[in-house]
């Protein structure tokens, strides 16, 4: 029974991981570079929720939306101000400027919120529902439903809307997409903003479960990288699957092995994947560089 409980807990956290993963996949899809500031967007999502909800007392759900919107705004400005002028520069330059940006955000966060870890108060009752010997905290039920809802929303955006189709077209062939009349610059910005918004949403979901401090982005980054590589770089299905998988393995690892190494599990999975299936679970063969 405890095993099932671990799996369920893992799936709940995994839902948020899936959001981080698809966010990163989106940005990778268009820029062909993993966003090294992705974890910081997650961190900002959590901190903004802390400020809006715990500090200012705004309604919880509204605070979540505001937090996500604020991060999307920051992401948008960053994309326009720094990434756009670097479009024709080497991948190395783009990566390093992203790392500089992530350091910047981390340290700004430290100035604003101090390095002392904060916890976001939970608006939900702390008594768990029990069902067949399993425990379900209301907070966590909300997390999994919100995560699934956002995954679904992203899926619909990509599959059903005009801009979503244009995004996919651009991922597949940027030059051909521009010949269709698609404004590539606009797709870049839009994709980036949605991508960081997804990271921020994961931050608002997991923030109340864990504590929040300026360095949580580092581990979030690492997990995000592990997720997209395990799933196969560029694959949305892969990122979602790998997100849930990572949540479950972490939960089992913490339960049966040691909670100290819980955060290393993503990386261990990543290494196993690189040994046995370097292109990831859903990756296409021959994706070099």
């Amino acid at each position: 029974m405890i095993f099932v409980q671990y799996v369920i807990n893992g799936l709940i956290i995994g839902g948020a991981y899936a959001l981080i993963g698809i966010g990163l996949t989106m940005v990778f899809g268009i820029m062909r570079v993993v966003n090294f500031a992705h974890g910081e967007m997650y961190m900002l999502g959590a901190y903004f929720l802390f400020t809006f909800f715990t500090k200012m007392g705004i309604n919880f759900y509204l605070s979540m939306l505001l937090a996500i919107a604020a991060v999307m705004g920051i992401g948008g400005i960053y994309e326009k101000a720094i990434l756009k002028p670097l479009r024709r520069r080497s991948i190395e330059t783009v990566m390093l400027s992203m790392i500089g940006f992530s350091l910047f955000i981390q340290n700004i966060a430290m100035l604003i919120w101090t390095p002392v870890p904060e916890s976001i108060t939970s608006p939900f009752p702390l008594t768990a529902y029990t069902l067949g010997g399993l425990y379900f905290l209301p907070q966590r039920i909300m997390v999994i439903f919100a995560a699934l809802f956002l995954v679904l929303l992203t899926h619909l955006l990509l599959k059903k809307t005009k801009i979503g189709k244009a995004m996919r077209a651009t991922f597949q062939d940027l030059e051909a997409a521009s010949l269709m009349g698609i404004k590539i610059d606009r797709i870049y910005s839009f994709t980036f903003v949605i991508g960081v918004g997804l990271a921020a949403s994961a931050g608002t979901l997991l923030g109340p479960i864990f504590t929040v401090h300026p360095y949580i982005g580092n581990l979030a980054n690492l997990k995000a990288f592990a997720i997209v590589i395990i799933g196969g770089l560029g694959s949305f299905t892969g990122a979602i699957t790998a997100g849930f998988l990572l949540g479950v393995f972490e939960s089992l690892g913490a339960g049966y092995v040691s909670s100290g190494y819980q955060d290393a599990i993503g990386f261990i999975l990543l290494i196993i994947i690189l040994i046995y299936r370097p292109t990831g679970l859903f990756g296409k063969i021959g994706q070099r560089r």
Binding site: V33, V34, I91, M95, N218, L219, N221, L222, F225, A226, I229, L233, G260, Y261, D263, A264, F267, I268, L270, L274, P278, T279, Q287, R288, R289
Partner: peptide
Amino acid sequence: LRGAYFVIMTIGITEVLKL
């Protein structure tokens, strides 16, 4: 595989060793 993989591996191994 090249490119980002090496960067990610090097970052990852550092975090894991820190743990």
